[in-house]
Design a binder for these strands. Structure first.
Length: 421
RNA sequence: GGAGAGGUGGCUGAGUGGUCGAAAGCGGCUUCCUGCUAAGAAGUUAUACGGUCAAAAGCUGUAUCCAGGGUUCAAAUCCCUGCCUCUCCGCCA
């Protein structure tokens, strides 16, 4: 939850963020509820004070005991009345509070769609091949890297199975990415993927993203769409010592996404699937904007190094206001070149939250003065598969249909240099 | 899935309806003493939000003994639900 005092003091800033991020929230109603609640809680505390005072006297067995008990009873009725009124107001207040976005940092471009994102860098050259290129589906088919038909029969649309070298290739890429991150002193976590609502809410995926999560109704669990959810939320209510920070984690997990709202989009192939594997970087740091910025840049660089090792051309973009989520203050996507699409497409997403998540989950640290302050959180993809297999297969195909294996990956594939037909 | 036990402050742990935000011990902090690195003495020590104040301190109000609901004039204490931990049985990768 955003600090209500900040909202009271600078409502215009939040109104702008609400508009820019396109959040369905009426801030004036929230502020009105805040006033009503505060006024009512004042009245309630006064009544409680009176009742507590009378209770103390009753305990001393005075002569007019019964009289006092009657008086307390009347106070109690009035209290109950106001308390239930308060509860209703507070419920609505909390619901609206959950929708208050974090403020985008200066430098986040204002915009409505991904067309408004701003490219800031490129790496690698996009080579237009002098032969007819095959898309990843065709390549997967001729090499036997994936089975779509069988998977879809039992798991529905967007399902896939990686087979043979396809599965080995995925494992190799994941392990390469993991090793690159581990070399930078990150702590590996394989977190819970089946979590309670508080974890989804606390990391900011709920309430607005509820349609995108798989829900296990019988047990009231949700399947996480990224290991970030488990990694961040297992620290709920924790207080770090300042010298524990920054704490850097790398997560590994399957990820589950309903892709609601994307019905009919990207239904072919490995681009938009319900289940995938991801290596994820997550960082906790002190509540210092400059430190967070440095960490953000480092997370971005780590991901870029992985793509460079895989010899895949990519570009980095700054996401515009409508494309960053409720909680993010700044976000970069890395888009990797996909020949079949003749475009750079999202493969990585690097987000800074400042204290948006830590306030929801009550994750703090003790600063130099001994005071508790909310930490900052950040995260970025290291690698996500099978989407990354699209640029991998398509960029590395040769005229004869074989697939080139970049040098850095060969140790993970028993020295394999080319996947031949 | 079945049966049982439990969840109290930084930690251990007492408290079965009012005098309890909570005994005692440990730990922490402050001061003193002694002097030689550890021991002694005294005091102090929960959190959040509000009021008072220029501000801090202090004083003061409310809430908090896992969470939510209920009983009662009054709940850490009684009742219900949920969550978590532990033990036994069953099932199982």
């Amino acid at each position: 939850m955003i600090n209500i005092e900040k909202i009271r003091n600078e409502p215009e800033l939040f109104k702008k963020a609400i508009t820019d991020k396109k959040v369905p929230l009426e801030l004036d109603r929230l502020l009105e509820l805040d006033r009503l609640c505060r006024d009512l809680i004042g009245q309630i505390e006064l009544l409680r004070q009176q009742r507590n005072h009378i209770s103390e006297i009753i305990a001393d067995e005075p002569d007019n005991r019964n009289e006092l008990i009657d008086k307390s009873r009347i106070l109690g009725k009035e209290l109950a009345n106001k308390e239930s009124k308060f509860q209703n107001l507070e419920t609505e207040f909390k619901k609206l509070m959950a929708l208050v976005p974090s403020l985008p940092l200066i430098g986040v471009p204002k915009g409505d769609t991904d067309k408004d994102n701003v490219e800031i860098s490129r790496w690698g050259s996009v080579i237009q091949k002098d032969f007819r290129i095959k898309d990843h589906l065709e390549l997967a088919l001729i090499h036997g890297l994936a089975d779509f038909e069988g998977a879809r029969n039992i798991a529905g649309s967007r399902a896939y199975a990686l087979t043979g070298n396809g599965a080995l290739l995925e494992l190799a890429i994941l392990r390469l990415a993991l090793d690159k991150i581990l070399a930078k002193a990150f702590t590996l976590i394989s977190p819970p993927l089946l979590v309670k609502e508080i974890a989804m809410f606390g990391t900011g995926y709920f309430p607005l993203g509820e349609d995108n999560a798989y829900e296990l109704q019988k047990d009231k669990f949700y399947l996480t769409g990224t290991s970030e959810v488990g990694i961040v939320s297992i620290h709920m209510n924790k207080v770090f010592e300042a010298n524990d920070l920054p704490k850097r984690y790398v997560g590994i997990s399957p990820c589950f996404r309903r892709e609601a709202g994307a019905a009919g989009r990207d239904t072919k192939g490995l681009y938009r699937v319900h289940q995938f594997q991801k290596i994820e970087q997550v960082v906790f740091c002190t509540n210092n904007d400059e430190i967070a910025r440095v960490e953000h840049t480092a997370l971005l660089k780590n991901a870029e190094e992985i793509l460079q090792a895989l010899e895949l051309p990519y570009r980095v973009v700054v996401m515009c206001t409508a494309e960053i989520g409720l909680g993010q203050v700044y976000k970069n996507d890395i888009e990797t070149w996909m020949p079949s699409r003749q475009d750079y497409c999202e493969t990585h997403s690097c987000s800074s939250f400042h204290n948006f998540q830590s306030r929801r989950l009550n994750i703090r640290y003790r600063n130099e003065k001994g005071e508790k302050a909310y930490i900052y959180t950040l995260n970025n993809t290291a690698i996500a598969s099978p989407r990354i297999l699209i640029p991998f297969l398509e960029n590395h195909q040769n005229a004869d249909g074989s697939i080139y294996i970049p040098k850095a990956l060969r140790p993970y594939l028993n020295g394999l240099e080319v996947i031949r037909l």
